[in-house]
Structures are given as C-alpha cells and as structure tokens.
Nucleic acid binder design. Sequence first.
DNA 1: TGCACGATGAAC
DNA 2: TTCATCGTGCAC
Length: 181
Amino acid sequence: MSCRILEKLPRSFYARDAISVAKDLLGKFIVHRFHGVGYCGKIVETEAYLGPHDRASHSARGMTARNAAMFGPTGHAYVYLIYGVHCCFNIVTGKQGDGAAVLIRAIEPIAGTYGKTNGPGLLARAMNITRALNGHDLFGDTFYIAQSPRKEKIVIVRRRRIGVDYAGAWARRLLRFYVKD
DNA sequence: TGCACGATGAAC
DNA sequence: TTCATCGTGCAC
C-alpha cells in the first residue's frame, strides 16, 4: 500500500499552539500497523484543546492518572475512554506540560479501516486505536502521522466544538476545524 | 464506598 | 430524538 512511502511529520510540527496544529493536521494521514495489518486514513476533522485554562479541555482540572499523557511530550498520543465505551484519539501539542492537545474527530478511510470513520469513537475503532496506545510516541514505525502525498488545496471550515456546552464561553469558541465536504 | 456525569453512537 | 453504558473523579 502507498502509505509505506509517506513522510512522517517532524516533531516541530506539534511543538506549536493547538489551533495551528489542528488546522494543519487536516489532510494529513494517520498510519497504524497492528498485527500485520496496515491502517491508513486521511484526517478531515479536528478540535483544538488549548490547555488547563480551556475549560472544555480534560487538562482543565489538572493532571490525573487518566489525562497524564496530555501533559507529556509533544507529538505523543493521548487516547482515553469516553462514556465507558468509546476511545478517542488525541495528539499532544505545544511544550511538555502544556496540557494541550488536538482531538481527531473524523478521517477519510484510505486503507485497512473497517466500519464508519466519521466520529471520534468510530475512527479509533476503525483504525484499531486503543488505550494501549495512550502515551505512544507518534514517531515509531507502527503508529505515526504522515505528510499528504500530494499537495492538495483544502477549504477549512471553523465551527464550535461538539459536546462541550458546559464549558461556558469556551464552548462557543471556534476551535473545531474540518475539510469542506 | 457510592454516585453523577460525559470531547458518543446506535436504535427507533 | 432518545437511550444504553461504564470508567473517572469527587463527595461523603
């Protein structure tokens, strides 16, 4: 499959503010190899979670056993369980200790995926991303983010984040990004 | 030790 | 539109 030749994103890509990373991740590829199967998907929707000051963020209430990975080194994965059922895949951004991350909400299936991919829980399942990958460095050979193989023009749409109404003013900020259509 | 809640998904 | 479902975090 063509995913093998894709170039990994440099670590400096993630060492920026979550908003920039969330926008720039659109169109990039997630590659995951597991039990001999290669999963590959194009990122089409993300959300930025800025850090402890962002009330909608998991890091808003300080570091706990669950969200420790979110305060870890940039470019690592933060995978958590929501509603006791679904896994959600995030990428740590900024500097270590920032508690900032970008949630991957939807992908476009390229290879190896099964089922739907248009939701945080669904895409994790489709790509076999589990909590075993929590804290995983995204620069290994089995799980990483890669450049888009060809330069394509994408139209980015900004919207409010989903399911964070409890976060007050933070819930209204336009921190969700997706590719038009 | 108990309980309320949620960055959801699937059924109806 | 409604509900199942259960790991977390926090109250007691």
